[in-house]
Design a protein around this nucleic acid. Structure first.
Length: 448
RNA sequence: CGGAGCGUAGCGCAGCCUGGUAGCGCACUUGCUUCGGGAGCAAGGGGUCGGAGGUUCGAAUCCUCUCGCUCCGACCA
């Protein structure tokens, strides 16, 4: 992409409404534009990151056996009356009336819709298990939206819903999602820690919040330091095999959010040096809720003995749009965003220090073409801005690898390769620099 | 929903107290000089001062109402 043809409205000054760093940087880097309280338009750069995050989530969901669907944003109130949630949900649900005076709503979640799909289509235990997910916009009319996309009213969420014949089978599905989540966040360069969460009226142990540690996190969290360093399960993990050992390994050490924290237990179970007390951002939440929706909505299948069995359900959420902010919170510096390669809006940039100079244009154009042909997602800064402004923009935007070429480099046949994360620059022969950049990027495309 | 604050050019702000018809920095346009870390000079463009009503000869400024946004609390992917 040529920067001169792109749409990248960067801001030099920080809009005053932005309180936290991720919100500030997203506005400054031209990733989003606020439309109303807690509602944002995604500009090209932000959309690219959002899409890349969504695709990683998608890949890991598919790997774990979930199947993608797409459910509507607008739902019927009647469905919510079946589960008895229409009256219970409260003002967070955006209720709308259509031209026929029928009650509809903008979905804050999709248990009802998916349960209806399941109940109307699945008849036999032989069709189980099923795990259906979608990545769709949700709307929750938060009393107080804040922190940019971290707590918007409209947000993009991956929500999966599983259906199993028995509670034991449901536990297996739960484990699949548990492992999948560890991998998903790791692939975005995040260290997530699963923490036992409150389960509400259902009870049991099967609810975990996935928290990433960041100074600006919304809640206080406590955990054993070893959890942060535990390597995530590899890509070739057999999701159909026994995942219980992995689940055990990750849940045996102490980890709790403020609401679930037990100071006495924390002191007793975690040695001094291993105690971590930090701020965290919730990026995922999984839970098993048995027949909470399948029972009232009549989601039943015939078991092996011919009897009807109410499906055991679980749901598994990831805040996709929130993750954009969360990654920035976890990875930035004074100059701007520092994107891990797998989610970077562009993997590399070619910076032409003297656009308009025939020799420089030619050298940069060739470099750009070669990077593109190598499958690199590259931004070519062909504007006639001054060098300082170009560097500042690329650092703000957070392009991981920047190939800098000016008349000097053209003369000597060199390119400067800058690593955004370390800030280090190397002067290399053009072909060497090109190969180095491609190698570095390729090596980091798939983390974990 | 309780408490606080803010709406003046794309962004950041001054002007308001003490009414006289709008200004600064950045950004933008044009020209010249520059050009390897956010350039300099010069000339420009852009605002019904969030909206409505009122007071007044005259309102960004004073009064009333209203809308929007932000922050603190209770709530959440």
């Amino acid at each position: 992409m040529h920067l001169s043809r792109y749409f990248l409205p960067v801001l030099r000054e920080t809009p005053k409404e932005a309180e936290i760093i991720s919100h500030q940087l997203m506005l400054r880097a031209g990733m989003i534009k606020q439309s109303a309280a807690g509602i944002y338009s995604w500009l090209p750069l932000g959309l690219k990151v959002l899409t890349k995050i969504g695709n990683i989530v998608r890949e890991e969901q598919n790997r774990a056996g979930a199947v993608e669907i797409l459910m509507p944003t607008i739902q019927s109130a009647d469905l919510w009356r079946e589960s008895k949630r229409y009256d219970d949900y409260g003002k967070e649900m955006l209720r709308i009336t259509d031209r026929h005076e029928r009650d509809i709503l903008f979905g804050p979640t999709a248990e009802e819709v998916v349960t209806a799909i399941f109940r109307d289509t699945v008849r036999s235990y032989k069709d189980l298990p099923k795990n259906l997910y979608n990545i769709q916009w949700k709307f929750r009319d938060e009393v107080r939206p804040r922190f940019g996309v971290m707590r918007g009213r409209e947000f993009l969420m991956k929500d999966a819903y599983s259906f199993d014949l028995t509670a034991e089978a449901s536990q297996k599905t739960y484990n699949q999602m548990f492992v999948s989540y560890l991998r998903t966040f790791a692939r975005m360069g995040l260290k997530s820690v699963p923490m036992q969460a409150a389960t509400g009226p259902i009870g049991g142990k099967l609810s975990h919040e996935f928290i990433i540690l960041a100074e600006t996190g919304e809640s206080q969290v406590f955990c054993h330091r070893d959890l942060i360093e535990t390597p995530v399960p590899p890509a070739d993990t057999d999701y159909d095999g026994n995942l219980e050992p992995i689940f055990e390994k990750w849940t045996s050490l102490y980890a709790a959010t403020e609401e679930m924290h037990d100071e006495a237990r924390f002191m007793k179970e975690v040695p001094d040096a291993k105690r971590v007390s930090a701020r965290g951002i919730e990026v995922g939440h999984i839970f098993h809720f048995g027949t909470k929706y399948s029972e009232p909505m009549g989601a039943k299948v015939q078991g092996p003995d011919g009897q009807l069995v109410t499906a055991q359900m679980g749901s598994y959420g990831i805040g996709v749009s929130r993750l954009v902010g969360a990654i920035i919170e976890a990875s930035h510096d004074a100059a701007g965003c520092i994107w891990p390669v797998p989610v970077a809006p562009f993997e590399a940039a070619v910076i032409n220090l003297k656009a308009g100079d025939a020799a420089t244009d030619e050298a940069c154009g060739a470099l750009y073409a070669k990077l593109r042909n190598a499958g690199i997602d590259v931004l070519y800064d062909d504007t006639d801005d001054r060098a300082g402004a170009k560097f500042a923009t690329m650092d703000l935007v957070g392009v991981p690898y920047q190939l800098i070429v000016g008349p000097k480099g053209v003369k000597s046949g060199d390119v400067e390769l800058k690593d955004r994360k370390t800030g280090q620059k190397e002067t290399l022969p053009i072909e060497t620099g090109l190969a180095r950049a491609i190698d570095l990027i390729s090596a980091q495309r798939v983390l974990a």
